[in-house]
Simulated scan of single mutants.
Amino acid sequence: MIEGIKFITDEKGNQKGIILELPALKKHKVKASEVIEALSGLQELIDNAELDTQKASNWDLAKEHLKNLRP
């Protein structure tokens, strides 16, 4: 996988989101066409995404998830 593209998963391993780390992409001199190619299966990921039956996460929950991704 390309440095700078991170997939967010839940505790069950289901993919829930994608983060594009622009500084990392720049550092590794990744071209936009490479990112687009790496995400060529995005429609399949969207189609296979499990919908949450619980209420939507709030911003504080999202910040906690992001904080755990920091190196």
Rank of each mutant, 00 (worst) to 15 (best):
E44T: 12
M1K: 15
N48G: 08
I18P: 01
K12T: 14
V35W: 04
S33A: 14
K27Y: 15
D10I: 05
A49N: 05
Q15H: 07
G17H: 04
G41M: 05
V30I: 14
K31L: 12
Q54D: 03
K55Q: 08
D10T: 12
T9L: 04
A38P: 02
G17N: 09
L66F: 08
G17A: 13
I8P: 01
A62M: 09
D52G: 03
R70C: 00
W59Y: 10
H28G: 11
K67Q: 10
L45P: 00
D47A: 09
A62Q: 06
K6R: 13
E64F: 00
I19M: 12
N14W: 15
G17R: 03
Q15D: 05
I5Y: 03
L69Y: 00
E21P: 01
A56G: 04
L39I: 09
G4P: 10
F7H: 13
L20N: 04
Q43V: 09
K29N: 14
K63I: 00
K27G: 03
Q15L: 05
P71I: 01
L61D: 11
S33K: 15
L20C: 06
K55I: 04
Q15V: 13
K12Q: 15
I8M: 07
L51M: 05
D47S: 06
L22D: 02
L22A: 08
A49H: 12
E64G: 01
E34A: 06
E34I: 07
D47P: 00
L69E: 00
N14C: 12
L25F: 07
L69V: 00
L22Q: 06
H28C: 14
K67G: 00
Q15F: 03
L45Q: 07
L66M: 10
K26H: 10
D10Q: 14
L61S: 11
I2T: 05
L42Y: 13
G13T: 05
E50K: 11
N14A: 15
E11H: 13
A56S: 09
E21G: 03
L51C: 00
T53P: 00
L25H: 08
K31H: 13
N58W: 01
E11A: 12
E37D: 10
N14D: 15
I19D: 01
E21L: 05
I2D: 02
V30Y: 03
F7A: 11
K6F: 13
N14L: 14
K67M: 04
G13N: 08
A38H: 11
Q43E: 07
L51A: 02
E50I: 11
H65S: 01
F7K: 11
A24I: 10
R70G: 00
I46R: 06
K27F: 14
